[in-house]
Amino acid sequence: MRYLFSVIHDRPGLATPEEDAAIDVFNDRLQAEGHWVFAGGLASPGTATVVDNRGGAAMVTDGPFLESKEFLAGFWIIEAADLDVALRLAAEGSKACNRKVEVRPFA
């Protein structure tokens, strides 16, 4: 079963060197234990561009699709047997990156 861990943050600024180091340790563990699928940290929401080509003519807009106080700062995609395993990993991930984590299963 795959889960998306969305890292939620509400302040500008990327991860500190200490946070990066803790994330590396956590990532190593995910790989060693077979949970790792993919992960990445994102640049700030101000760097986003939204493209909408539903109407045939692609509309390009500067900025994130939703202006909100909280934003996606990064993510993990992990493999876990069930939600209990995923929640335990998310607790460790949240501690490592020092941010909130939303756990959501893939359909």
């Binding site: 079963m1 047997a81 939600l83 209990d84 335990r88 299963p105």
Partner: peptide, 14 residues
């Protein structure tokens, strides 16, 4: 069902 909340005893630490 969708999030696969397990049907088993929690682990000792939980």
């Amino acid at each position: 069902k969708a999030a696969r909340i397990p049907y088993r005893m929690p682990s000792a630490e939980d």
